[in-house]
Design a protein around this nucleic acid. Structure first.
Lengths: 146, 146
DNA sequence: ATTTTTGCAAACCTTTTGCATGGAA
DNA sequence: TTCCATGCAAAAGGTTTGCAAAAAT
C-alpha cells in the first residue's frame, strides 16, 4: 500500500517527500468536512502531540494550496480559512453556522461570466464565487426561515 | 455647498462628524479608479502631509466599509484591497494588470445562485463573485490574446 | 551521500486597542 | 459644553524567514 490518503498521494505524485509532519497535516485535514484555519490545525496538532511546528504547518498549507488539494477561502468575517477540495474548477458553498462546505460546479455560472465578459469588454481570466448560507442540517436546528 | 464629495456626503448623511482626517481619506479614495490598499493610502497621506494617523485611517476604512461606499476585496494574491463602489449589491471585475475595477450587476448570476440553492438544499444568505482579467486598455497594451 | 524538510526563534506586516487630548456639533 | 474622533504607542494577530540540525530519498 502506497498510501490511502489522497492528500499524501498528491504530494507524492508531485515529487515531494512524504515526511512525518506532512502526513500528520494531511491526516488532520482529512477529518474536516468544513473549513479550518491554520490556527485550528496548529492547536489540533499540538493536542495530539503530532510534533508539527507552526512554520512547517504554514509551509504545508502553502504547498497543498499550490497542488489544489486545499483552497484558501476568505470568510465574510475577514478570516482566512482553508477547505479540502477537489482539483477541478469549482466554487464553495459555506454554511455560516457550522462551517460545512459543499463544492459547487460552475454550471450556469459559466454563461453568466461569459455574458459579463461580453458586456464589459474585459478578458476574464478567472473568477471566484463564494456562497454563504445555512446547510440543511443547520436550517433544521435553527428553525424554518421566518 | 454642503459637499461635492459623495463619500463625505455619505458620512454626513449617516450622522458622522466631518473631520479633517475623514475628508482627507475621502479625497484620496476619490482619486482611485481601481483598488487600493490601506498601506497605499497611508503612504499617499504621508507624502501629502495630510496628517492622518494609521489608526484613524483604518478606522475610516472600517466606517466607509460599513456604509458600503467602499468594499473590501480579497485579491488572488491574498492581499486585502478596497474599492470605492456603489451601494447596491453588485460584484467586482478587477483588472489584474492595472487594478482598475468595474462594477458588475448581479444579472444572470441571480438565477445561477437560485439554482445552486435548489440543488444543494442550502438556504443561501449571501454570495460574492470576484472576477479577474484584463480590461480593454490593458488588453491593447499587452497584445491580443494568442 | 545528497537534497529536501524541519524546528526554532526572531522578524515582519497588517490591523487593533487603550487612553489622554483635541475638535466638531 | 458635550460627546465623538484623533494620535500615539503599544499590543495583538497572522504569516514568513534564516539557519543549523534532522530526515527522506
Amino acid at each position: 500500500m502506497t498510501s490511502s490518503d489522497p492528500i499524501v498521494e498528491a504530494l507524492g505524485a508531485a515529487g515531494y517527500r512524504l515526511t512525518g509532519p506532512r502526513r500528520a497535516v494531511a491526516g488532520l485535514i482529512a477529518e474536516y468536512d468544513g473549513h479550518f484555519t491554520a490556527a485550528e490545525l496548529e492547536i489540533a496538532a499540538r493536542e495530539r502531540r503530532l510534533g508539527v511546528s507552526r512554520a512547517t504547518l504554514f509551509r504545508a498549507l502553502e504547498l497543498l494550496t499550490e497542488l489544489h488539494v486545499v483552497e484558501r477561502l476568505d470568510l465574510p468575517s475577514g478570516e482566512h480559512a482553508y477547505v479540502p477540495c477537489v482539483r477541478e474548477h469549482h466554487h464553495h458553498l459555506v454554511c455560516s453556522r457550522c462551517g460545512r462546505v459543499a463544492d459547487v460546479e460552475d454550471g450556469a455560472l459559466a454563461d453568466a461570466v461569459a455574458e459579463i465578459a461580453r458586456r464589459s469588454g474585459y478578458r476574464i481570466e478567472s473568477h471566484r464565487l463564494e456562497l454563504f448560507g445555512l446547510c440543511r442540517h443547520c436550517q433544521a436546528k435553527a428553525g424554518p426561515s421566518a
